[in-house]
Design a binder for these strands. Structure first.
Lengths: 205, 205
DNA sequence: ATTATTTTATACACATGTGGACAAAATAAC
DNA sequence: GTTATTTTGTCCACATGTGTATAAAATAAT
């Protein structure tokens, strides 16, 4: 019931996600976003309450299609090194495939918000710490599965991996070739003894 | 000759650097910056021509005090691994010492400008590619000095190091402890065989 | 057909932001 | 003391941006 909406709310979230991904949050004013959506600010506020509320929705949408989503959905018993290798490989592919070179929306937002914007800063911090905690959990599983040396410092390794991921997600704005991006990731992963090479299967634990 | 300036131009560049470092470029309007400086926009434009021109000046000032400046000023014959280890160590120290957690102004600006803003995007891209090229040159020197294995893929290693540096400079906005930051860097450097450990001097080339 | 509901449209009252024009003030040199 | 020079201060004419209030339009249910 009620007057039918002029626009598709779901599509709108996608449009806004792509706009913020490219231009950042503050650069995406309610006025500009509304104009892009072909609606009035009145309809915008009615549908999304506030820009900040919409951003939270956009962030969830973004995370749902992020290349590193695979890391949080890893099934029990899966080979960890192979998962890491595959995921970083896909991240390099996805970042370089973006013709607009927008990088990662999470990283862009961390840069924009952390230690600057109260609520959204904490939100982004939570996303990063969540990813870091997840990496640590995965590595522990790797140890339990006998895939990773139990003497290894898991927290330090998780930090190194999180750093690798964040590095790729900002470096990709400048280094646009998939080969070079992967070259950086492969070299680092290999150094960490976490690369699952398809050709030379090395069981160096 | 002429009417004396109300403010210290040099100090002003510092104030603006710190403002942009924290809040970003677009968030630092000419109006806001002028008010912070206690001058009118009129004086602002008179002294700095434009916000963009001032940003270029600010960027130079920033690079002059950046923790990785040591990498571009390395004297001939210096030990490369030790230089890298020391510089990354200092970067971790500097980033965690910033009570405001602003991260790195270059990285923040890469995130804000690259592939979005024509002129400033290219400017930031140049800074990153310059750093990458410099790392590659340093590694070549390391090979020439017999410090680094000549069979090593230097371009890939330089990319991995640049990625490590950029990762630290964004991760530091969330991971605020020096120990954890260094833990990520140390683990990665060690994996790359580029860590110069003070205690266990390992000549693994 | 009336009613309740929801969305849309328009207007208000601001605050912020831009860049330039022009006059006034403060100095150095003559 | 006049002149040339440079910086300030003020005003203009806009464009962009915010959030809210209020009315109008379009539907579903009764």
């Amino acid at each position: 019931m009620g007057r039918p909406s002029k626009f598709d709310r779901d599509e709108a979230v996608d449009v806004v996600m792509n706009a913020i991904w490219r231009n950042g949050y503050e650069a995406s004013s309610v006025k500009a976003l509304s104009e892009q959506l072909g609606i009035t600010r009145s309809s915008f506020y009615n549908a999304f309450t506030s820009r900040e509320a919409l951003f939270r929705e956009v962030l969830e949408r973004y995370c749902d299609q992020s290349p590193d989503k695979a890391l949080t959905e890893a099934k029990q018993g899966i080979a960890i090194k192979a998962l890491l290798t595959r995921t970083f490989r896909n991240a390099c592919k996805a970042r370089s495939a973006d013709t607009e070179g927008r990088g990662c929306m999470v990283i862009n937002s961390v840069s924009e918000f952390c230690n600057v914007h109260d609520e959204l800063g904490d939100l982004m911090e939570g996303v990063v710490l969540g990813s870091l905690g997840n990496l640590e959990r995965l590595l522990h599983r790797g140890v339990a599965q006998g895939e990773i040396d139990e003497k290894r410092d898991i927290h330090a390794t998780a930090l190194a991996l999180q750093n690798l991921l964040m590095g790729l997600n900002i470096m990709c704005k400048v280094v646009r070739s998939e080969a070079e991006l992967w070259s950086a990731a492969e070299t680092t992963l290999s150094g960490l003894g976490l690369l699952e090479d398809n050709n030379t299967r090395q069981t160096g634990n």
